[in-house]
Design a protein around this nucleic acid. Structure first.
Lengths: 243, 243
DNA sequence: CAGCTCTATGACCATTCGGTGACATTCGTC
DNA sequence: GACGAATGTCACCGAATGGTCATAGAGCTG
Protein backbone atom coordinates (compact mmCIF):
# COMPACT_ATOMS: atom_id res chain seq x y z
CA UNK A 1 0.00 0.00 0.00
CA UNK A 2 1.44 3.32 -1.02
CA UNK A 3 0.48 5.32 2.03
CA UNK A 4 2.13 3.28 4.71
CA UNK A 5 2.73 6.47 6.63
CA UNK A 6 4.95 5.43 9.48
CA UNK A 7 3.24 2.94 11.72
CA UNK A 8 -0.10 4.37 10.72
CA UNK A 9 -1.49 1.16 9.33
CA UNK A 10 -0.21 -1.22 11.92
CA UNK A 11 -2.69 -3.65 13.40
CA UNK A 12 -2.42 -5.65 16.59
CA UNK A 13 -4.13 -9.03 16.55
CA UNK A 14 -4.94 -10.52 19.95
CA UNK A 15 -6.12 -14.08 19.47
CA UNK A 16 -5.24 -17.32 21.21
CA UNK A 17 -6.29 -19.69 18.47
CA UNK A 18 -3.13 -19.98 16.34
CA UNK A 19 -4.98 -21.09 13.25
CA UNK A 20 -7.39 -18.21 13.27
CA UNK A 21 -4.66 -15.76 14.20
CA UNK A 22 -2.54 -16.93 11.29
CA UNK A 23 -5.38 -16.57 8.82
CA UNK A 24 -6.35 -13.13 9.98
CA UNK A 25 -2.79 -11.89 10.04
CA UNK A 26 -2.00 -13.25 6.64
CA UNK A 27 -4.96 -11.50 5.15
CA UNK A 28 -4.22 -8.24 6.85
CA UNK A 29 -0.69 -8.40 5.49
CA UNK A 30 -2.03 -9.10 2.04
CA UNK A 31 -4.00 -5.88 2.37
CA UNK A 32 -0.86 -3.98 3.13
CA UNK A 33 -1.08 -3.70 6.88
CA UNK A 34 1.81 -4.22 9.18
CA UNK A 35 0.74 -6.79 11.75
CA UNK A 36 1.70 -7.53 15.33
CA UNK A 37 0.41 -10.41 17.43
CA UNK A 38 -0.37 -11.16 21.04
CA UNK A 39 -1.56 -14.47 22.40
CA UNK A 40 -3.21 -13.28 25.59
CA UNK A 41 -4.47 -10.18 27.33
CA UNK A 42 -1.37 -9.45 29.37
CA UNK A 43 0.85 -9.56 26.32
CA UNK A 44 -1.54 -7.33 24.47
CA UNK A 45 -1.62 -4.67 27.18
CA UNK A 46 2.12 -4.77 27.50
CA UNK A 47 2.58 -4.33 23.78
CA UNK A 48 0.07 -1.52 23.70
CA UNK A 49 1.88 0.38 26.42
CA UNK A 50 5.08 0.33 24.40
CA UNK A 51 3.72 0.66 20.88
CA UNK A 52 1.09 2.45 18.88
CA UNK A 53 -1.11 1.05 16.17
CA UNK A 54 -4.11 1.97 14.06
CA UNK A 55 -6.37 -0.86 15.15
CA UNK A 56 -6.62 -3.67 17.67
CA UNK A 57 -8.39 -6.87 16.65
CA UNK A 58 -9.36 -8.43 19.94
CA UNK A 59 -10.82 -11.81 20.73
CA UNK A 60 -13.35 -11.62 23.56
CA UNK A 61 -12.47 -15.04 24.90
CA UNK A 62 -8.85 -15.08 25.94
CA UNK A 63 -6.88 -17.05 28.51
CA UNK A 64 -6.26 -14.94 31.61
CA UNK A 65 -7.48 -11.39 31.13
CA UNK A 66 -10.41 -11.52 28.71
CA UNK A 67 -10.88 -9.21 25.75
CA UNK A 68 -13.44 -6.97 27.39
CA UNK A 69 -11.12 -6.33 30.31
CA UNK A 70 -8.24 -5.62 27.95
CA UNK A 71 -10.34 -3.03 26.17
CA UNK A 72 -11.51 -1.41 29.38
CA UNK A 73 -7.96 -1.26 30.67
CA UNK A 74 -6.78 0.31 27.43
CA UNK A 75 -9.39 3.00 27.71
CA UNK A 76 -8.64 3.61 31.35
CA UNK A 77 -5.03 4.10 30.41
CA UNK A 78 -6.05 6.71 27.89
CA UNK A 79 -5.51 4.59 24.82
CA UNK A 80 -8.21 5.37 22.28
CA UNK A 81 -7.05 3.08 19.51
CA UNK A 82 -10.06 1.58 17.71
CA UNK A 83 -10.97 -1.96 18.74
CA UNK A 84 -12.67 -4.62 16.66
CA UNK A 85 -13.97 -7.47 18.79
CA UNK A 86 -14.13 -11.07 17.66
CA UNK A 87 -16.35 -13.45 19.53
CA UNK A 88 -17.37 -17.06 19.34
CA UNK A 89 -20.90 -16.66 20.50
CA UNK A 90 -23.57 -14.99 18.48
CA UNK A 91 -25.31 -13.55 21.50
CA UNK A 92 -26.40 -10.02 20.61
CA UNK A 93 -25.88 -8.95 24.19
CA UNK A 94 -22.19 -9.61 23.66
CA UNK A 95 -22.20 -6.92 21.10
CA UNK A 96 -23.52 -4.41 23.58
CA UNK A 97 -20.98 -5.52 26.16
CA UNK A 98 -18.23 -5.05 23.62
CA UNK A 99 -19.39 -1.58 22.73
CA UNK A 100 -19.81 -0.66 26.36
CA UNK A 101 -16.30 -1.80 27.10
CA UNK A 102 -15.19 0.79 24.59
CA UNK A 103 -15.05 -1.28 21.44
CA UNK A 104 -15.83 0.10 18.02
CA UNK A 105 -17.21 -2.87 16.19
CA UNK A 106 -17.97 -6.48 16.67
CA UNK A 107 -17.77 -9.59 14.54
CA UNK A 108 -18.88 -13.06 15.53
CA UNK A 109 -17.04 -16.19 14.50
CA UNK A 110 -17.00 -17.85 12.14
CA UNK A 111 -16.83 -14.87 9.86
CA UNK A 112 -16.08 -14.38 6.22
CA UNK A 113 -12.71 -12.82 5.57
CA UNK A 114 -14.37 -10.50 3.14
CA UNK A 115 -16.53 -9.10 5.86
CA UNK A 116 -13.67 -8.91 8.30
CA UNK A 117 -11.62 -6.85 5.88
CA UNK A 118 -14.62 -4.67 5.14
CA UNK A 119 -15.01 -3.86 8.81
CA UNK A 120 -11.34 -3.18 9.25
CA UNK A 121 -11.46 -0.77 6.34
CA UNK A 122 -14.60 0.86 7.67
CA UNK A 123 -13.10 1.46 11.09
CA UNK A 124 -9.88 2.82 9.75
CA UNK A 125 -11.64 5.00 7.25
CA UNK A 126 -13.69 6.47 10.06
CA UNK A 127 -10.58 7.31 12.01
CA UNK A 128 -9.24 8.79 8.84
CA UNK A 129 -5.80 7.36 9.30
CA UNK A 130 -6.26 5.19 6.31
CA UNK A 131 -7.42 6.83 3.16
CA UNK A 132 -6.16 4.68 0.37
CA UNK A 133 -9.06 2.31 0.42
CA UNK A 134 -9.51 2.96 -3.28
CA UNK A 135 -6.85 0.43 -4.13
CA UNK A 136 -8.93 -2.44 -2.90
CA UNK A 137 -12.29 -0.72 -2.93
CA UNK A 138 -15.01 -3.26 -3.39
CA UNK A 139 -16.77 -2.48 -6.63
CA UNK A 140 -20.49 -2.59 -6.42
CA UNK A 141 -21.06 -3.41 -10.05
CA UNK A 142 -19.06 -5.86 -12.11
CA UNK A 143 -19.20 -5.98 -15.89
CA UNK A 144 -17.72 -8.69 -18.04
CA UNK A 145 -18.56 -10.17 -21.41
CA UNK A 146 -21.90 -8.46 -21.60
CA UNK A 147 -22.88 -9.54 -18.11
CA UNK A 148 -23.57 -7.08 -15.38
CA UNK A 149 -23.55 -8.02 -11.70
CA UNK A 150 -24.70 -5.84 -8.84
CA UNK A 151 -23.13 -7.12 -5.64
CA UNK A 152 -25.24 -4.92 -3.45
CA UNK A 153 -28.33 -6.69 -4.59
CA UNK A 154 -26.95 -10.11 -5.54
CA UNK A 155 -28.54 -9.43 -8.82
CA UNK A 156 -27.35 -9.70 -12.40
CA UNK A 157 -28.28 -9.34 -16.01
CA UNK A 158 -26.72 -11.94 -18.24
CA UNK A 159 -25.38 -11.26 -21.71
CA UNK A 160 -28.68 -12.39 -23.22
CA UNK A 161 -30.62 -9.92 -21.14
CA UNK A 162 -31.89 -12.54 -18.76
CA UNK A 163 -32.24 -11.39 -15.15
CA UNK A 164 -30.38 -13.52 -12.66
CA UNK A 165 -30.81 -13.75 -8.92
CA UNK A 166 -27.59 -14.89 -7.32
CA UNK A 167 -27.49 -16.71 -4.03
CA UNK A 168 -25.22 -15.50 -1.29
CA UNK A 169 -22.50 -18.05 -1.93
CA UNK A 170 -22.59 -17.56 -5.68
CA UNK A 171 -22.21 -13.85 -5.23
CA UNK A 172 -19.37 -14.19 -2.76
CA UNK A 173 -17.43 -16.61 -4.91
CA UNK A 174 -17.84 -14.40 -7.93
CA UNK A 175 -16.71 -11.43 -5.93
CA UNK A 176 -13.57 -13.11 -4.67
CA UNK A 177 -12.71 -14.28 -8.17
CA UNK A 178 -13.37 -10.87 -9.65
CA UNK A 179 -11.26 -9.11 -7.05
CA UNK A 180 -8.39 -11.25 -8.19
CA UNK A 181 -9.19 -11.11 -11.87
CA UNK A 182 -6.43 -12.61 -13.95
CA UNK A 183 -4.91 -14.33 -10.96
CA UNK A 184 -5.19 -17.94 -10.03
CA UNK A 185 -7.36 -18.58 -6.99
CA UNK A 186 -7.09 -22.00 -5.43
CA UNK A 187 -10.07 -23.92 -4.12
CA UNK A 188 -8.62 -23.61 -0.65
CA UNK A 189 -8.46 -19.84 -0.98
CA UNK A 190 -12.07 -19.75 -2.06
CA UNK A 191 -13.16 -21.95 0.79
CA UNK A 192 -11.38 -19.80 3.29
CA UNK A 193 -12.56 -16.50 1.91
CA UNK A 194 -16.15 -17.48 1.32
CA UNK A 195 -16.91 -20.02 4.00
CA UNK A 196 -14.68 -18.89 6.82
CA UNK A 197 -12.43 -20.82 9.10
CA UNK A 198 -14.51 -23.35 10.92
CA UNK A 199 -16.50 -24.80 8.07
CA UNK A 200 -14.84 -26.69 5.29
CA UNK A 201 -16.98 -28.38 2.71
CA UNK A 202 -15.16 -30.50 0.18
CA UNK A 203 -13.44 -28.85 -2.73
CA UNK A 204 -16.04 -30.41 -5.01
CA UNK A 205 -18.48 -27.94 -3.63
CA UNK A 206 -16.41 -25.18 -5.14
CA UNK A 207 -16.49 -26.89 -8.51
CA UNK A 208 -20.23 -26.91 -8.35
CA UNK A 209 -20.47 -23.24 -7.76
CA UNK A 210 -18.14 -22.58 -10.65
CA UNK A 211 -20.44 -24.72 -12.71
CA UNK A 212 -23.39 -22.61 -11.69
CA UNK A 213 -21.61 -19.38 -12.43
CA UNK A 214 -20.68 -20.68 -15.86
CA UNK A 215 -24.25 -21.63 -16.56
CA UNK A 216 -25.38 -18.19 -15.62
CA UNK A 217 -22.80 -16.09 -17.37
CA UNK A 218 -20.93 -18.02 -20.02
CA UNK A 219 -22.26 -18.00 -23.57
CA UNK A 220 -20.95 -21.52 -23.92
CA UNK A 221 -20.59 -23.03 -20.44
CA UNK A 222 -18.63 -25.95 -21.85
CA UNK A 223 -16.01 -23.59 -23.29
CA UNK A 224 -15.67 -20.98 -20.60
CA UNK A 225 -14.04 -17.68 -21.44
CA UNK A 226 -14.36 -16.03 -18.05
CA UNK A 227 -14.29 -18.78 -15.46
CA UNK A 228 -11.20 -20.68 -16.44
CA UNK A 229 -9.90 -23.86 -14.91
CA UNK A 230 -6.27 -23.96 -13.93
CA UNK A 231 -5.71 -27.63 -13.90
CA UNK A 232 -4.47 -29.03 -10.62
CA UNK A 233 -4.65 -25.66 -8.90
CA UNK A 234 -7.89 -23.76 -9.00
CA UNK A 235 -9.68 -21.18 -11.07
CA UNK A 236 -9.02 -17.88 -12.74
CA UNK A 237 -11.48 -15.19 -13.64
CA UNK A 238 -11.08 -13.04 -16.73
CA UNK A 239 -13.25 -10.04 -17.40
CA UNK A 240 -12.21 -9.95 -21.05
CA UNK A 241 -12.70 -12.92 -23.31
CA UNK A 242 -9.68 -14.94 -24.50
CA UNK A 243 -6.57 -12.81 -24.08
CA UNK B 1 -17.33 24.40 -0.42
CA UNK B 2 -14.50 22.00 -1.15
CA UNK B 3 -13.65 21.29 2.44
CA UNK B 4 -10.03 20.40 2.94
CA UNK B 5 -10.62 17.85 5.63
CA UNK B 6 -12.27 14.66 4.53
CA UNK B 7 -15.57 15.07 6.37
CA UNK B 8 -15.47 11.48 7.49
CA UNK B 9 -15.20 12.01 11.20
CA UNK B 10 -16.39 15.53 11.74
CA UNK B 11 -19.34 16.14 14.01
CA UNK B 12 -21.48 19.26 14.34
CA UNK B 13 -22.88 19.93 17.80
CA UNK B 14 -25.92 22.21 17.94
CA UNK B 15 -26.65 23.04 21.56
CA UNK B 16 -27.42 26.30 23.30
CA UNK B 17 -26.40 25.27 26.79
CA UNK B 18 -22.68 26.12 26.83
CA UNK B 19 -21.93 23.75 29.66
CA UNK B 20 -23.49 20.75 28.04
CA UNK B 21 -22.02 21.68 24.67
CA UNK B 22 -18.55 21.85 26.15
CA UNK B 23 -18.85 18.47 27.79
CA UNK B 24 -20.16 16.79 24.69
CA UNK B 25 -17.54 18.35 22.46
CA UNK B 26 -14.71 17.48 24.75
CA UNK B 27 -15.74 13.85 24.83
CA UNK B 28 -16.15 13.69 21.10
CA UNK B 29 -12.69 15.13 20.64
CA UNK B 30 -11.29 12.59 23.08
CA UNK B 31 -12.75 9.92 20.83
CA UNK B 32 -10.89 11.30 17.87
CA UNK B 33 -13.65 13.25 16.16
CA UNK B 34 -13.21 16.70 14.77
CA UNK B 35 -15.91 18.89 16.28
CA UNK B 36 -17.75 22.00 15.14
CA UNK B 37 -20.30 23.95 17.16
CA UNK B 38 -23.42 25.99 16.57
CA UNK B 39 -25.42 27.78 19.25
CA UNK B 40 -28.75 28.03 17.48
CA UNK B 41 -30.71 26.71 14.54
CA UNK B 42 -29.86 29.46 12.11
CA UNK B 43 -26.15 29.10 12.70
CA UNK B 44 -26.43 25.36 12.32
CA UNK B 45 -28.23 25.56 8.98
CA UNK B 46 -25.79 28.12 7.73
CA UNK B 47 -22.84 25.98 8.70
CA UNK B 48 -24.42 22.92 7.13
CA UNK B 49 -24.92 24.70 3.84
CA UNK B 50 -21.22 25.49 3.67
CA UNK B 51 -19.72 22.38 5.25
CA UNK B 52 -20.08 18.66 5.36
CA UNK B 53 -19.85 16.38 8.36
CA UNK B 54 -20.47 12.81 9.41
CA UNK B 55 -23.04 13.52 12.10
CA UNK B 56 -25.15 16.30 13.56
CA UNK B 57 -25.89 16.25 17.27
CA UNK B 58 -28.97 18.40 17.58
CA UNK B 59 -30.77 19.72 20.63
CA UNK B 60 -34.52 19.73 20.13
CA UNK B 61 -35.04 22.83 22.24
CA UNK B 62 -33.17 25.71 20.69
CA UNK B 63 -33.67 29.45 20.71
CA UNK B 64 -35.26 30.59 17.47
CA UNK B 65 -35.59 27.71 15.01
CA UNK B 66 -35.99 24.54 17.04
CA UNK B 67 -34.14 21.30 16.40
CA UNK B 68 -36.99 19.55 14.66
CA UNK B 69 -37.32 22.40 12.21
CA UNK B 70 -33.58 22.41 11.61
CA UNK B 71 -33.69 18.74 10.76
CA UNK B 72 -36.68 19.10 8.48
CA UNK B 73 -35.03 21.98 6.69
CA UNK B 74 -31.82 19.99 6.26
CA UNK B 75 -33.74 17.15 4.71
CA UNK B 76 -35.71 19.47 2.49
CA UNK B 77 -32.44 20.90 1.29
CA UNK B 78 -31.27 17.42 0.39
CA UNK B 79 -28.85 17.02 3.28
CA UNK B 80 -28.98 13.43 4.46
CA UNK B 81 -26.33 13.64 7.16
CA UNK B 82 -27.32 11.50 10.16
CA UNK B 83 -28.90 13.37 13.05
CA UNK B 84 -28.85 12.46 16.74
CA UNK B 85 -31.44 14.39 18.73
CA UNK B 86 -30.97 15.48 22.32
CA UNK B 87 -33.99 16.48 24.31
CA UNK B 88 -34.85 17.54 27.82
CA UNK B 89 -38.14 15.77 28.08
CA UNK B 90 -38.43 12.04 28.34
CA UNK B 91 -41.65 11.97 26.41
CA UNK B 92 -41.55 8.98 24.05
CA UNK B 93 -43.66 10.94 21.60
CA UNK B 94 -40.63 13.15 21.19
CA UNK B 95 -38.81 10.22 19.78
CA UNK B 96 -41.45 9.75 17.16
CA UNK B 97 -41.42 13.44 16.36
CA UNK B 98 -37.68 13.33 15.97
CA UNK B 99 -37.83 10.40 13.65
CA UNK B 100 -40.62 11.98 11.68
CA UNK B 101 -38.50 15.04 11.20
CA UNK B 102 -35.88 12.83 9.63
CA UNK B 103 -33.64 12.08 12.61
CA UNK B 104 -31.69 8.88 13.10
CA UNK B 105 -31.61 8.47 16.84
CA UNK B 106 -32.76 10.14 20.00
CA UNK B 107 -31.32 10.60 23.45
CA UNK B 108 -33.05 12.30 26.36
CA UNK B 109 -31.27 14.45 28.89
CA UNK B 110 -29.82 13.88 31.30
CA UNK B 111 -27.77 11.15 29.69
CA UNK B 112 -24.55 9.38 30.50
CA UNK B 113 -21.74 10.47 28.26
CA UNK B 114 -20.91 6.83 27.87
CA UNK B 115 -24.27 6.14 26.35
CA UNK B 116 -24.02 9.22 24.21
CA UNK B 117 -20.74 8.01 22.74
CA UNK B 118 -22.21 4.58 22.16
CA UNK B 119 -25.00 6.06 20.13
CA UNK B 120 -22.63 8.20 18.15
CA UNK B 121 -20.55 5.18 17.32
CA UNK B 122 -23.60 3.13 16.42
CA UNK B 123 -24.89 5.78 14.07
CA UNK B 124 -21.56 6.28 12.38
CA UNK B 125 -20.99 2.59 12.05
CA UNK B 126 -24.25 1.96 10.31
CA UNK B 127 -23.80 5.08 8.29
CA UNK B 128 -20.49 3.71 7.06
CA UNK B 129 -22.14 0.51 6.21
CA UNK B 130 -24.75 2.26 4.17
CA UNK B 131 -22.55 4.90 2.67
CA UNK B 132 -22.40 3.07 -0.59
CA UNK B 133 -26.13 3.57 -0.82
CA UNK B 134 -27.55 5.07 -3.94
CA UNK B 135 -27.82 8.30 -2.01
CA UNK B 136 -31.56 8.15 -2.05
CA UNK B 137 -32.61 11.38 -0.43
CA UNK B 138 -34.89 10.94 2.52
CA UNK B 139 -38.20 11.70 0.94
CA UNK B 140 -41.31 12.55 2.87
CA UNK B 141 -43.54 10.81 0.38
CA UNK B 142 -42.75 7.48 -1.18
CA UNK B 143 -44.50 6.19 -4.27
CA UNK B 144 -44.21 2.67 -5.61
CA UNK B 145 -46.45 0.39 -7.58
CA UNK B 146 -49.45 2.63 -7.18
CA UNK B 147 -48.96 2.96 -3.44
CA UNK B 148 -48.28 6.26 -1.80
CA UNK B 149 -46.77 6.56 1.67
CA UNK B 150 -46.45 9.75 3.68
CA UNK B 151 -43.75 9.24 6.29
CA UNK B 152 -44.57 12.41 8.14
CA UNK B 153 -48.02 11.16 8.99
CA UNK B 154 -47.37 7.40 8.90
CA UNK B 155 -50.24 7.31 6.50
CA UNK B 156 -50.59 5.64 3.16
CA UNK B 157 -52.92 5.00 0.28
CA UNK B 158 -52.63 1.55 -1.19
CA UNK B 159 -52.81 0.76 -4.89
CA UNK B 160 -56.50 -0.07 -4.56
CA UNK B 161 -57.26 3.29 -3.04
CA UNK B 162 -57.59 1.92 0.45
CA UNK B 163 -56.29 4.22 3.18
CA UNK B 164 -53.70 2.68 5.47
CA UNK B 165 -52.50 3.80 8.87
CA UNK B 166 -48.96 2.58 9.40
CA UNK B 167 -47.64 1.90 12.85
CA UNK B 168 -44.35 3.41 13.91
CA UNK B 169 -42.33 0.28 13.33
CA UNK B 170 -43.97 -0.47 10.02
CA UNK B 171 -43.18 3.01 8.81
CA UNK B 172 -39.60 2.88 10.00
CA UNK B 173 -38.92 -0.45 8.40
CA UNK B 174 -40.41 0.69 5.17
CA UNK B 175 -38.34 3.83 5.33
CA UNK B 176 -35.07 2.01 5.87
CA UNK B 177 -35.85 -0.38 3.04
CA UNK B 178 -36.86 2.43 0.74
CA UNK B 179 -33.76 4.46 1.50
CA UNK B 180 -31.76 1.54 0.23
CA UNK B 181 -34.03 0.55 -2.61
CA UNK B 182 -32.48 -2.12 -4.77
CA UNK B 183 -29.96 -3.09 -2.14
CA UNK B 184 -30.03 -5.95 0.27
CA UNK B 185 -30.76 -5.00 3.85
CA UNK B 186 -30.07 -7.70 6.41
CA UNK B 187 -32.35 -8.40 9.33
CA UNK B 188 -29.56 -7.28 11.61
CA UNK B 189 -29.30 -3.97 9.81
CA UNK B 190 -33.04 -3.50 10.12
CA UNK B 191 -32.98 -4.33 13.80
CA UNK B 192 -30.22 -1.88 14.44
CA UNK B 193 -31.71 0.89 12.36
CA UNK B 194 -35.25 0.53 13.62
CA UNK B 195 -34.94 -0.81 17.13
CA UNK B 196 -31.61 0.58 18.20
CA UNK B 197 -28.20 -0.77 18.98
CA UNK B 198 -29.09 -2.42 22.26
CA UNK B 199 -32.54 -3.88 21.70
CA UNK B 200 -32.71 -7.21 20.01
CA UNK B 201 -36.04 -8.76 19.24
CA UNK B 202 -35.76 -11.99 17.30
CA UNK B 203 -35.33 -11.83 13.59
CA UNK B 204 -38.73 -13.42 13.23
CA UNK B 205 -40.16 -10.13 14.32
CA UNK B 206 -38.69 -8.59 11.23
CA UNK B 207 -40.28 -11.25 9.07
CA UNK B 208 -43.64 -10.40 10.52
CA UNK B 209 -43.34 -6.77 9.68
CA UNK B 210 -42.38 -7.66 6.15
CA UNK B 211 -45.45 -9.83 6.07
CA UNK B 212 -47.60 -6.89 7.10
CA UNK B 213 -46.05 -4.55 4.60
CA UNK B 214 -46.69 -7.08 1.89
CA UNK B 215 -50.29 -7.43 2.94
CA UNK B 216 -50.72 -3.70 2.84
CA UNK B 217 -48.95 -2.89 -0.37
CA UNK B 218 -48.47 -5.93 -2.55
CA UNK B 219 -51.15 -6.79 -5.08
CA UNK B 220 -50.27 -10.44 -4.53
CA UNK B 221 -48.62 -10.78 -1.12
CA UNK B 222 -47.58 -14.35 -1.90
CA UNK B 223 -45.64 -13.18 -4.97
CA UNK B 224 -44.11 -9.96 -3.82
CA UNK B 225 -42.74 -7.54 -6.38
CA UNK B 226 -41.57 -4.85 -4.00
CA UNK B 227 -40.59 -6.55 -0.76
CA UNK B 228 -38.29 -9.29 -1.94
CA UNK B 229 -36.62 -11.97 0.14
CA UNK B 230 -32.91 -12.57 -0.25
CA UNK B 231 -32.52 -16.04 1.07
CA UNK B 232 -30.17 -16.38 3.98
CA UNK B 233 -29.50 -12.68 4.14
CA UNK B 234 -32.41 -10.31 4.39
CA UNK B 235 -34.74 -8.29 2.26
CA UNK B 236 -34.65 -5.97 -0.70
CA UNK B 237 -37.10 -3.28 -1.64
CA UNK B 238 -37.86 -2.39 -5.24
CA UNK B 239 -39.94 0.60 -6.15
CA UNK B 240 -40.50 -0.66 -9.67
CA UNK B 241 -41.90 -4.07 -10.33
CA UNK B 242 -39.45 -6.51 -11.88
CA UNK B 243 -37.58 -4.50 -14.48
C1' DC C 1 -59.18 -0.62 35.16
C1' DA C 2 -61.13 -2.28 31.01
C1' DG C 3 -60.50 -2.32 26.28
C1' DC C 4 -57.84 -1.35 22.55
C1' DT C 5 -53.74 -1.31 19.53
C1' DC C 6 -49.25 -2.51 18.63
C1' DT C 7 -45.26 -5.46 19.24
C1' DA C 8 -42.93 -9.79 20.03
C1' DT C 9 -42.65 -14.77 20.03
C1' DG C 10 -43.52 -19.65 19.13
C1' DA C 11 -45.35 -23.34 16.23
C1' DC C 12 -46.03 -25.39 12.05
C1' DC C 13 -45.33 -25.98 7.30
C1' DA C 14 -43.28 -24.88 2.65
C1' DT C 15 -39.31 -23.73 0.32
C1' DT C 16 -34.57 -23.00 -0.91
C1' DC C 17 -29.90 -23.71 -0.85
C1' DG C 18 -25.81 -26.01 -0.20
C1' DG C 19 -23.19 -30.11 -0.11
C1' DT C 20 -22.29 -34.75 -1.73
C1' DG C 21 -21.75 -38.80 -4.50
C1' DA C 22 -21.94 -41.08 -9.01
C1' DC C 23 -20.69 -41.08 -13.42
C1' DA C 24 -18.83 -38.90 -17.68
C1' DT C 25 -15.21 -36.25 -19.50
C1' DT C 26 -10.88 -33.99 -19.97
C1' DC C 27 -6.08 -33.36 -19.02
C1' DG C 28 -1.37 -34.66 -18.12
C1' DT C 29 1.98 -38.11 -18.26
C1' DC C 30 4.28 -42.03 -19.50
C1' DG D 1 -2.35 -43.91 -27.25
C1' DA D 2 -3.43 -45.56 -22.64
C1' DC D 3 -3.90 -44.87 -18.07
C1' DG D 4 -4.80 -42.41 -13.71
C1' DA D 5 -6.09 -38.31 -11.62
C1' DA D 6 -8.55 -34.06 -11.66
C1' DT D 7 -12.56 -31.80 -13.18
C1' DG D 8 -17.40 -31.30 -15.40
C1' DT D 9 -21.99 -32.39 -14.80
C1' DC D 10 -26.14 -33.88 -12.85
C1' DA D 11 -29.63 -35.21 -9.59
C1' DC D 12 -30.79 -35.80 -5.03
C1' DC D 13 -31.30 -35.14 0.15
C1' DG D 14 -31.07 -32.87 4.51
C1' DA D 15 -30.80 -28.85 7.03
C1' DA D 16 -31.61 -24.32 7.57
C1' DT D 17 -34.45 -20.52 6.46
C1' DG D 18 -38.57 -18.05 5.63
C1' DG D 19 -43.97 -17.60 5.36
C1' DT D 20 -47.81 -17.54 7.95
C1' DC D 21 -50.91 -17.66 11.70
C1' DA D 22 -52.28 -17.60 16.47
C1' DT D 23 -51.48 -15.84 20.65
C1' DA D 24 -49.31 -13.59 24.55
C1' DG D 25 -47.59 -9.44 26.49
C1' DA D 26 -46.86 -4.40 26.72
C1' DG D 27 -48.43 0.11 26.54
C1' DC D 28 -51.79 3.61 25.71
C1' DT D 29 -56.54 5.72 26.17
C1' DG D 30 -60.63 6.75 27.84
Amino acid sequence: MSTTAEGASRVLVVEDDPHLAAGVMENLRAEGYEVAAAGDGEQALEWLRANRCALVVLDVMLPGVDGLAVCRTMRDEGNSTPVLFLTARGDPADRVRGLEAGGDDYLSKPFHLQEFLLRVRAILRRWDWYRSASATAATAVLRFGGNEVDFRAFRARAWNGEAQELTEKEAMILKVLAEHAGEIVSREDLLERVWGYDVFPSTRTVDNFILRLRKRFERDPANPRHFLTVWGVGYRFLAEGEP
